[in-house]
Design a protein around this nucleic acid. Sequence first.
DNA 1: GCAGAGGCATAGGGACAGCCTATGTGCACA
DNA 2: TGTGCACATAGGCTGTCCCTATGCCTCTGC
Lengths: 309, 309
Amino acid sequence: MPLPPRVTDLTSFDLLLSVAELGSIGRAALAHGMSQPSASERLRTLEARVGVTLLERTPRGAKLTTAGQLVAGWAAQVIAKAADLDAGITSLRADRQSHLRIAASLTVAEYLLPAWLIALRQVSPGTATVLSAGNSVHVSEQVLADRADLGFIESTDVPAGLATRVVARDELVLVVAPGHPWARRRRVTAAKAAATPLASREPGSGTRQAWEHALQAAGIAESADPLLEMSSTTAIKAAAIGGIGPAVLSVHTVEADLAARTLVRIEVGDVDLHRALRAVWPSGTTPRGPASDLLTIATRSLTHRADRR
Amino acid sequence: MPLPPRVTDLTSFDLLLSVAELGSIGRAALAHGMSQPSASERLRTLEARVGVTLLERTPRGAKLTTAGQLVAGWAAQVIAKAADLDAGITSLRADRQSHLRIAASLTVAEYLLPAWLIALRQVSPGTATVLSAGNSVHVSEQVLADRADLGFIESTDVPAGLATRVVARDELVLVVAPGHPWARRRRVTAAKAAATPLASREPGSGTRQAWEHALQAAGIAESADPLLEMSSTTAIKAAAIGGIGPAVLSVHTVEADLAARTLVRIEVGDVDLHRALRAVWPSGTTPRGPASDLLTIATRSLTHRADRR
DNA sequence: GCAGAGGCATAGGGACAGCCTATGTGCACA
DNA sequence: TGTGCACATAGGCTGTCCCTATGCCTCTGC
């Protein structure tokens, strides 16, 4: 389902935030490198799209109406995520002079790294980073081969030769579409879950390994072949929402869908689906410079979250 | 600071997600109501902006590269927030035939309502909602005067005539810029915090009331006059980041800034800054129809979150 | 082996959105 | 009462974006 066109252009919303900060359309225009009339018209058409008055314009400046504050608040959240996206994109452009090489599993790269990168930019603004993503085995190899300074993995077993520190926790969840038979009872036995074909990631993925691992830990040796295998989380989610079948995904991935009730979480009796996310680096060494900074930031985020829970 | 232009146009990213789901550029184009060549070119220019190859194109379809999966993952988060924004905007357009009138305090409206509205749309697709935002007193008045079917407030004291249920918890935090003297010690006494002028919301706001309330509960009768008063959270945050002075805000508001280290959280000794967010409706009545659905959704989100912590 | 279908890329042309400069209007403060 | 600041309007231009038509490639079925 395509995104409504009303919210596709973030520039106007960003401009609205600047008006809230600076108290005037003209100053906001200046901050965005555009002329005052352009900003004025942009805001006007934004109001037309939204359908309510967002700004109270006076000859002494402009301030937000109540509705404007609401829209600005929602927009700020979108823009914060967009800043994450931008930080991630920056780290993908492999500039040769980069000084910090990061390898990360998909889950870490998707949900934790962007915020860390932004924090790192605060601490040492000059640091260029390169991110290489892959499954946990791939990440370990990169670090061992000295092709990455710091790695982040999902697996519980850490290869020999790597030092490690837990930086976050993750949880897998079994989800189905609301219309699925399981959705009514919201709980299945581990045996039943294992016997049911799922929409799944490819065999090498950390998510899939963790799921099979967890079932084994619960005493179930074998699980059914996947219903279908796709390498993209997005595609798997779409399949689950479309009612093709159950899927196992990181809780981060499906948070919004659980809240919006497009997916339903199913408890799997007696199976522990928590897992630790770990930083890894060559054992015997100590991360230095930017790698050390990033490790500190990542570790801090763990304690920070623990505080809140 | 304006948002980097690389990420301002969400359409292209949305298209990328559709390609991930559908497995082909042409089908994605169809889903977005555009021609295949248009989609093809959009994706090509997106790749140019990002600077890495996102898609592997074959005569049998297209799938994401590893970098593409990362970008898609980040983009999905932006788009999820954009969907929240859209849901919020929809609820602001006061269509006359609306059947559910909601009044909410700014904090609830900004951080919780959009997800609830999307969930509500799932449960009863036909329901049109109108949202009116204001401070807690305003919300209570609206409900009492039967100008809103359901209200959400931040205050601890519930006016007579209203029935209530806790739907979420919130926490206020004292924050300063990283350069501020307090940032080093990360803790101040309640007396010192009370004696220091803060960047603050207007007197009627729930946030400000809660802060003064909490200080009083800690035995501090009087607090300093505000450093400056602004009606917009954005402006207060900007002032704090700019180093004007400390500010007290909801933890939701500053989460991203704490992670990115643009603001530092300061503990205030022995002051409990937690507060409950409550749904209210006229006592003696029971919410019915969509109002009841929304109340259920809001309550469910509480238990859901509690599970996770 | 060959034809057809499905998929992506390229070319060309047209419409619309957005921006800039210049100017007008209204309010506040000295 | 004049000056400064802020927003609105007008006119003209550039550039982006989209569409239709067409070409090339690969896989599949006969």
